[in-house]
Simulated scan of single mutants.
Amino acid sequence: MTERGEGVMKTAVAGPAPAVRRLPWVRGRASVLERAAMVIAGLMVLIAVAGPLVAPHDPYAVDLGQALNAPSASHWFGTDANGRDILSRVLHGAGVSLLATVIVIAVATLIGTLLGTLAALGGRVVDEIIMRICDIGLSLPAIILALGLAAALGPGLRSAVIALCLTWWPGYARLVRSLVRDVKDAEYVEAARTLGVPAPRLIVKHILPNALNTLYVQTTLDVSAVMLVISGLSFVGVGAQAPSAEWGAMIAAAANNITGGWWAVLFPGLAIVITAISFNLLGDWLRVRNDPTLREAR
């Protein structure tokens, strides 16, 4: 009786321990943060699509009589040195910035996926050639390579996008190579190969779909990085040029008047920061969702 009683007491004391490691309020806090990130990211995408339609003013209309007006009821975000409404320009610039970012990520992902798959399945010589090219591309920061290429192509948003497309793919190629090599020897792939499934169908239907979950997470995380690089290129003068409403170009144009018109720098800067943080949090959430070990750790 005593031993059983002591066992019950020990069980009762030890029982709540797992609940202490996974407190509901911790999960709730993380869930609120993740949901907020999804809402903000979705809102930014919505603004990018519908921003020009709901902008209260023409983002390119110059009115020198309204230059550097502080935020007010008629101009919620104030006006810039040319009297243009900053709110309208921020709304319009969401589409410009996000579209450029999506193009860079889509093209870089496509190139990286093709070359990474070829490296994983094409034999040792092909693998060595592609990986050495990736090593060269990854040895320097992408922004440095993009800066040189964009300057060579001529200032402009198109040049910045092309430069980033040409410099951003090595990371995706190396990631895809690793993922495909992990999947290609799986039992279900070997079974499909034994059944005589053609190589192209084997790659498209069996290998890539099961290897690219991690790639989706990486592309989401890269939204903020690519946007910051595009804005940086515009700020130093090789990206979008005035009077473009691209957020980095807006900050560059307003930098000379920051003491007398801080709002012209603040609001496009906040747009960049909020978008970057929201997509980073969304990428972290997707990473946790796709990694069972991380889900258990939380």
Score class of each variant (00 low, 15 high):
M1S: 07
E3D: 14
R4Q: 15
V8T: 10
A12W: 14
G15P: 06
P18A: 10
V20N: 09
R21Q: 08
R27E: 08
L33T: 06
E34R: 15
M38E: 11
M44K: 06
A50I: 15
H57G: 10
A61F: 11
A61E: 13
V62N: 02
L68G: 07
N82K: 09
N82Y: 12
D85C: 11
V96Y: 06
L98A: 05
T101G: 01
V102N: 04
V104Y: 04
I105A: 02
I105F: 01
A108I: 07
T109Y: 00
L110F: 05
G112C: 06
L115I: 11
L115P: 04
L118F: 02
E128P: 04
I130N: 01
I130L: 08
S139H: 10
L140T: 12
I144P: 00
G148N: 12
A152K: 02
L153Q: 11
P155A: 09
P155D: 06
P155R: 14
G156D: 08
R158M: 08
I162E: 01
A163P: 08
W168F: 13
G171M: 12
Y172P: 01
V176D: 03
R177H: 10
R177Y: 10
K184A: 11
V189A: 05
A191I: 08
A191W: 09
T194H: 03
L195R: 14
V197G: 03
P200W: 03
R201N: 00
K205I: 00
H206P: 02
H206R: 08
P209R: 11
A211R: 09
L212S: 06
N213L: 15
V217L: 13
Q218G: 02
T219M: 15
L221R: 09
S224N: 06
V226E: 00
V226M: 01
L228G: 05
G232A: 09
L233M: 03
G239Q: 07
A240P: 00
Q241C: 07
W247R: 04
W247T: 04
G248I: 12
M250I: 07
A255V: 09
T275L: 09
T275P: 00
I277N: 02
S278Q: 11
F279W: 04
F279R: 04
W285L: 14
L286G: 11
L286F: 15
L294Q: 14
